[in-house]
Amino acid sequence: MKTGFNFAYLDEATKRMIRRKILKAVCIPGYQCPFGGREMPLAYGWGTGGIQVTASIIGKQDILKVIDQGADDTTNAVSIKNFFKRVCNIMTTDRTAEASLIQTRHRIPETTLNKDQIIVYQVPQPEPLRKLEPKEKETRKLHAYKEYALMHVKLYEEISQFGSVIKTWAYPVETNNRYITDPTPIPKFDNPKMNNMEALQLFGAGREKRIYAIPPYTKVKSLDFDDHPFEIQTWDECCSICGSTKSYLDEIIINNEGKKNFICSDTDFCKSNLEKNK
């Protein structure tokens, strides 16, 4: 472990403050708690919110997994993992099932999470109503009074223009029948995983200095209309590496003729699936 730093980089007082906010967030599922965010040794937009949450709850026994777009080996994921190795001297893993703490950007692992795990989401914009109502003072009222008509109007507009809701990521959800929550830019494919998840879900927004949470076993419903129910993406193809038909697939162009291939976005899932099928 690198010396000259406190365990997990943040000082104990800051960690305690953030833990208190996390407790509050857990008590009010989906509610955005403001917190005194600190400057981190990386720029906003690279996961500063998620890192502060992770730093506040990580312990010496934890095994950390970090993914970006489902992959453990992208630059962002690797540098965050290295950061925590240096300031905590903890173990890291690529295996979802082995991890006790998972920090993620843009995906939820395919492997079902369990009650001994915590998943921390990096949040670019915590306010699901922001694009519809620019004023913070007003969006707070909309949440407080549960005035969510505008959100459904957005879906209405997409159905009337395109025949169906075209939003495929950051698809808004209602948490515990109360707050409308931004699930972060995960594909809507992952939304159903949030519902009744056994693991604790924590969300940290660095720039906006907000923390919110979805406690284990909480109802999470993707917004929809009775006659236009929520649906997840499907593919005609299967993963060209492991053959999976159940996972979220990334489309990649593999030659100059534009030939396409589909592979699992969750690299760990793909690997284990391949091993299992061997």
Binding site: A149, L150, H152, V153, Y156, I159, D224, F225, D226, H228
Partner: peptide, 13 residues
């Protein structure tokens, strides 16, 4: 729709 959604069920048709 916005006004109706304040009072009505969530039904597109």
């Amino acid at each position: 729709a916005e006004r109706l959604l304040n009072v009505s069920e969530k039904n597109y048709s």
